[in-house]
């Protein structure tokens, strides 16, 4: 029972992720009524959960390298701090990333417990905050050039093209949901991995390790967020913010998903290493910021540097700096309270 109470902050984080980030995947499709919300929600829930359970461990262990949280109350505080930071920054109108919030909270935990932060790991993580969106921008630009060439020279009837675009959005959405689950489950359940030792369980034809059971729980929390709140966000994304054409939306979702997949696929990482190629670090990256990078990538192809919204970039940079700092400070303060007021073990 206590475990469930302590897990609640992680579940809240999952709900928040589902409510907000599913909109980056299906926002345009649902907002423009190309795909029904019910269809988008079913695909999102199914593939986010599958991604989390099947491929969630890579990014989660990457995050674990920054700091091993071994007590449930400590994990509860870190997850709560990250969630509160995300909520507060969102309310303040600053672009925010759950990945940065959780990383900030772990660094705050390292400070509080007096453990050294592995600067090599931290630098690598901060590096992904910069080259994650850049990579998404490059992918989006290249994909857009190819898709534009295909669409503009195609002799496929407009009505069939319409059908293919919708199917493309559904497929890209499924891939996007899988990648989001695989990569961002670390933000939801990553800090709890070292604190709970669940035995493996058999479910019909397959078995789930303790870690996978946590990811399944996180996936369900994200799904609840998708079902209960993401429709509102999707309608906003589809109608107000980044107003994308369905084809551009397809490219943005695909490019963003590719980035998230690259930073979470253990199989791909092992394959690259076996070929003597450098592998990308397996850590959670911000889907929203990758999305912004992808939109900018398309903008660059369409109109060059003029299309870049520098004030928006400035706000994103501000979010990059503010989120982890606020989260780390909050974690430091709340850990103090948890240890000294609520008398719960932190280390």
């Amino acid at each position: 029972m206590f475990s469930l109470i302590f897990l609640s902050s992680g579940l809240f984080m999952g709900w928040s992720l589902g409510a907000n980030d599913a909109a980056n995947i299906f926002g345009t499709a649902v907002g423009t009524k190309m795909v029904r919300f019910r269809t988008a929600a079913i695909i999102s829930c199914l593939f986010i959960t599958l991604g989390a359970v099947i491929a969630g461990s890579g990014a989660s262990h990457g995050l674990g390298a920054l700091g091993v949280i071994d007590q449930l109350p400590g994990a509860f505080v870190l997850s709560l701090c990250a969630a509160v930071t995300v909520m507060w920054m969102t309310k303040s109108g600053l672009p925010v990333s759950t990945s940065q919030a959780i990383v900030g909270a772990i660094v705050g935990w390292n400070f509080f417990t007096g453990r050294a932060t592995d600067m090599r790991v931290l630098t690598r993580i901060i590096g992904t905050w910069i080259y994650g969106p850049i990579l998404a921008g490059i992918f989006a630009a290249l994909l857009f050039i190819v898709v534009r060439k295909l669409v503009n020279t195609s002799t496929v009837h407009l009505l069939l093209l319409d059908r293919y675009t919708r199917n493309g959005l559904l497929l890209a959405g499924a891939f996007g949901a899988f990648s989001l689950g695989a990569n961002n489950i670390a933000n939801v359940m990553g800090v709890f991995i070292g604190t709970m030792d669940l035995p493996a369980r058999e479910f019909f034809m397959f078995s789930l390790s303790g870690e996978q059971q946590l990811f399944l729980l996180g996936g369900i929390a994200i799904s609840v967020g998708v079902v209960t709140y993401s429709k509102r966000v999707m309608m906003t994304v589809g109608n107000n913010l980044f107003k994308l054409s369905p084809v551009s939306a397809f490219v943005v979702v695909l490019a963003t998903s590719m980035v998230l997949f690259l930073f979470s696929s253990t199989t791909l990482s092992e394959f690259l290493l076996s070929r003597g190629l450098p592998a990308l670090p397996l850590i959670p990256v911000s889907q929203s910021q990758a999305c912004v990078g992808a939109v900018l990538g398309i903008g660059m192809v369409k109109g060059g540097w003029r299309t870049i919204n520098f004030p928006l970039l400035g706000r994103i940079a501000l979010g990059w700096i503010a989120t982890p700092i606020v989260s780390a400070l909050l974690a430091y303060i709340l850990l103090f309270f948890m240890q000294n007021v609520f008398l719960q073990p932190i280390v």
Partner: peptide, 11 residues
């Protein structure tokens, strides 16, 4: 049966 609202309106 047509899905892209913009295209649908134009047609």
């Amino acid at each position: 049966f047509m899905l892209i609202p913009d295209t649908r309106g134009d047609v």
